[in-house]
Design a protein around this nucleic acid. Structure first.
Lengths: 194, 194
DNA sequence: GCGCAGTTGGCATTAACTGTCAGAAAAGCA
DNA sequence: TGCTTTTCTGACAGTTAATGCCAACTGCGC
């Protein structure tokens, strides 16, 4: 059951994120201080750090939930679907699930243009990868015996690399291109059979 | 010409790095302060920050030079070599060029086990990627007209993803496996023709 | 020896966090 | 409604990484 606290907290979180992203877009991430965000959002600095453990989490914060969704989607793909298609299905769900395209574009630009944010973003994605590897491993079936099997790790890492490449290109072109299409082109370039 | 300053500076840098890495290994990265490193290395905090712009650079510092080497190596591969082989050649040079395997193993573990270091490491690698993309683009020849060509970006990102997967696996097994071999297995899992 | 260029160390300052603790606000209960 | 307990908030002080500034120092050519 959702208490009053939970609800007002969610509203507060959204409001703070909006304030922060607006300020980041206006003056740049590095030149916006936590103190300023807290002031404009009408909250104490201390509370802000209680909501978001770090400044970076103001932008990359809700990735944990998305990771869960991705994992569940991939896991629930029927067994006859190939790993590549299963992973692709997972990303399609994520892309449509979360925000409006404009919002995604805004956040993508912010992340890609801010080194420290980009690094943090990839770090979180690495956590997704680690969680997906065993699932992919299971789908691949048993590989070489006695020596560790790098296939799952490699496939997952590659898919993420292509998603990243496609997203960056998409953001560079202001969202005028089709993201799923770009992803398919990336994967085709890597795997050959275009 | 190398002056006395340059030489003593290089010695100092090496000494500081050794001190820092030793302390990081002993007490963990986060629990080692700049003040302590400076004290043990017999240098002022201020100077330490002049040698290494950030705490992370104590570990990931010489990546800039490695990136240059990688770029040059890939660029100098003969034209008949495929992009995949050219990139592979670049990484082989890097792996053998720098440190002893033990040192690489120690640094790899430190980086993979420390989130903030991992993030910085990835950030630097992203710079390498950005520099390699035009080179790979040139090797691929002109692709689709009028629409941006995602191939180079995708290929470079994939190669890095496989290097990363292989390196992590290699570090997990204390360096007992062959890194180049792991890389080939990763790429084979992705590209099919094993 | 003498000045010059580059280097170093100390000091002050900023900004991201963290620990603590008293007090406010909500929840649960009579 | 009133009271207790739980949970959250804000203020304050403190830590750590990082930067700017300036004065003192060091090697080097003259």
């Amino acid at each position: 059951m959702t208490t009053l606290w939970d609800r007002s907290r969610q509203v507060a979180v959204q409001e703070i994120v909006d304030t922060a992203v607006r300020l980041f877009a206006e003056q740049g991430y590095e030149h916006t201080t936590i103190a300023q965000i807290a002031r404009e959002a009408g909250i104490s600095q201390r509370s802000l750090f209680r909501y978001f453990g770090t400044k970076e989490d103001l932008v990359c914060g809700d990735q944990a939930a998305l990771g869960e969704l991705l994992k569940r989607t991939v896991q629930q793909q029927p067994a006859e679907v190939s790993v590549w298609d299963a992973l692709r299905a997972g990303f399609e769900v994520i892309l449509t699930a979360n925000h409006t395209p404009e919002r995604v574009l805004e956040l993508s630009r912010l992340i890609f243009n801010t080194p420290s944010l980009h690094a943090r973003y990839i770090e979180k994605r690495l956590c997704w990868q680690a969680e997906l590897v065993p699932i992919v491993q299971a789908r691949l079936g048993s590989g070489p015996e006695s020596t560790p099997d790098p296939r799952a790790k490699a496939i997952v890492a590659t898919v993420f690399a292509c998603v990243d490449a496609a997203t960056e290109l998409w953001a560079d072109h202001d969202g005028f291109l089709d993201l799923a299409d770009l992803y398919d082109q990336c994967l085709a370039a890597v795997r050959g059979h275009s």
